[in-house]
Design a protein around this nucleic acid. Structure first.
Lengths: 346, 346
DNA sequence: CTGTTAGCGCGTTCAA
DNA sequence: TTGAACGCGCTAACAG
């Protein structure tokens, strides 16, 4: 009558119930062969009868080789990150790993906390999309010698594998598109310049403006992380003396905030003002006009992250690899030639 | 020189490095008192020097009392679920628990797999928002005697604590609103009637229609789970002989699909057709016209789920409790009186 | 093929 | 106050 006080039956309970040894039971239940059909059946029956559930953490502990990998992401609200999470989860599952997701909520303190938690779960590897001020957090991981792949909000100076979108290029292309439409007063809305990728997006915009000789019109606006903050900042821009003829929103959430501001300022897309969104999202397809946007290659990025992780998992060490993928400019309806009024005013 | 082959230092390594026993080191590092300041300091120093990281799963294993609770959700794409996840995570963290999120991706097979995984992680409790055909999955959990709280897609016949929105009431209110505007031909778009809450939403609509004597106009359309499927189904509805003057979309994703169809059919909100959305989402605020919608009390629901879980965690057993919360009807711009043309045609 | 046994890293007795 | 020893549930190595 072992373990009558415990709620969950253990492997030993199953073994005794089946009249075999723990070793045999273990072999059967963990899928290994080398057990007679008769006994195997007895074990399965006993397990089912007792409602046995294998204790995965004990197994991992014993084996010394964890079966899950951690994924820390900064914002569940951001479709882009969620898409990556889905891609990663699929890849991980295919390769027999479980993905443990943790949510930093754009808060460095919480990020650190979450990283520690995931680490304490003895994951085989860590994939992180960091938030602002992630420096300490990363040290934490690197000290553990846990395979690490960083994504999106990093650059190639980072001392580990990284996978990113070519933010600079995409942003520069987007700006070129706007310029080609005749826009000069183009404002770039960015959540914060504390984030590497946001900074690169801003830099890409600046580079394109310079290239076109529009130095005088460069306007980078730091809007904040939340839609509410962005809303307010954008409204300021729109109500300022000379209004831009085009807005380039540096991300998913920024676009949302900007749209609210445009609405409140009672302006119409694209006649009164053009809007280009860095990041595409499902809801953009139902706007009138359909938003022009820059689509990051989510699947490609997810796949690349996983490939890098797999190599690490297989023990391949070596110089950090820095992968960067081209984004796609989707010209739709929210970007149009500069209205004549604006041209005349200039 | 113990464990030189291991990458991660263990408690024993710290202990030997500090010149104390494992017991002492354990006491220090797990925050317990009863250790002299001198030795405590030595342990801390050693831990820091070695980069010691506590093995949380080993600790849980030994203690027999897990510190995390599982949350299985069906769709990361759905803002409503994500909001609940955030709320739950906050509550859990506040109470010293970690939330392990798992994503079923609207796939019963995967849901089962994910539930098994979470269970294998020896969680202290389980919170599940199920997807279609979840029956087996649930048995899985209940057999384990793990504290279980079900949410959203369940009804009060379920033999465990449940927290839901009053779908029937909300849906009925919404329909009344449409009827009050003079609409008769109101179509109800639902993802699938296999989901209890969707069914209740449909029932609420039907009840309201009957109450108004509009039995003849009742039209419930099963559209499918993805935006693409919904898009197609809705298009069929819009192109059919007598077009409805109002659409009531039974959820977040359904609204998205419906909007795409409305766009493709080249109809305008709310002049050509009215649209009411069950579920509110951030992006709805940037639509012109601003979408009328039904907002579920996410925070309240999240809080209630957690309270129930806490009770279970504290050992309070007893009859299953079934909590249901009222949703809020947000009348905005996408619902308007029936256009005169439609009235005349009727 | 099968059973026995030694730990995985940790918390927790119990003596000293 | 401290340290030694035990065992959480499991797997793997070995002996039969």
């Amino acid at each position: 009558m072992a373990h009558t006080d415990r709620l969950l039956p253990t492997l030993r309970d199953v073994a005794t119930a089946a009249g075999v040894s723990v070793g045999t039971a273990s072999k059967v239940l963990s899928g290994g062969g080398g057990v007679s059909a008769l006994r195997a059946q007895r074990v399965w029956d006993a397990a089912r009868r007792l409602g046995y559930r294998r204790n995965g953490i004990a197994a991992d502990l014993r084996r010394g080789r964890p079966s899950s990998i951690g994924f820390v992401l900064p914002d569940l609200t951001n479709q882009f990150f969620v898409d990556i999470a889905r891609a990663l989860e699929n890849h991980a599952l295919e390769h027999g790993y479980q993905l443990i997701m943790a949510h930093a909520d754009e808060d460095p303190a919480r990020e650190l906390e979450r990283i520690r938690f995931v680490l304490s779960r003895q994951v085989a590897g860590m994939i992180i999309i960091p938030c602002r001020g992630y420096e300490h957090a990363i040290d934490e991981v690197r000290e553990c010698h846990v395979p690490l792949v960083m994504a999106d909000r990093v650059d190639e100076t980072f001392p580990a594998h990284t996978v990113t979108t070519d933010s600079h290029g995409a942003s520069s292309d987007g700006t070129d598109h706007l310029i080609a439409l005749g826009h000069e007063r183009i404002a770039f809305l960015v959540n914060t310049l504390d984030l590497v990728n946001s900074r690169e997006r801003a830099d890409g915009y600046i580079a394109a403006m310079r290239r076109a000789g529009l130095d005088a019109f460069i306007q980078v606006v730091e809007c904040g992380m939340t839609a509410a903050e962005i809303h307010a900042s954008t409204l300021d821009v729109l109500k300022s003396g000379v209004r831009p003829t085009a807005l380039f929103a540096g991300g998913n959430v920024t676009t949302l905030g900007a749209l609210r501001a445009i609405r409140d300022a009672n302006l119409h897309l694209p006649d009164d003002i053009s809007l280009l969104s860095f990041d595409d999202a499902p809801w953009m397809s139902v706007l009138r006009p359909y938003l022009s946007s820059i689509r990051q290659p989510v699947e490609t990025i997810g796949h690349a992250i996983w490939q890098l992780m797999l190599k690490l998992l297989n023990g391949e060490r070596g110089e950090p690899v820095h992968l960067s993928f081209k984004a796609e400019l989707l010209v739709r309806e929210s970007t149009a030639p500069v209205p004549v009024v604006a041209l005349q005013r200039a």
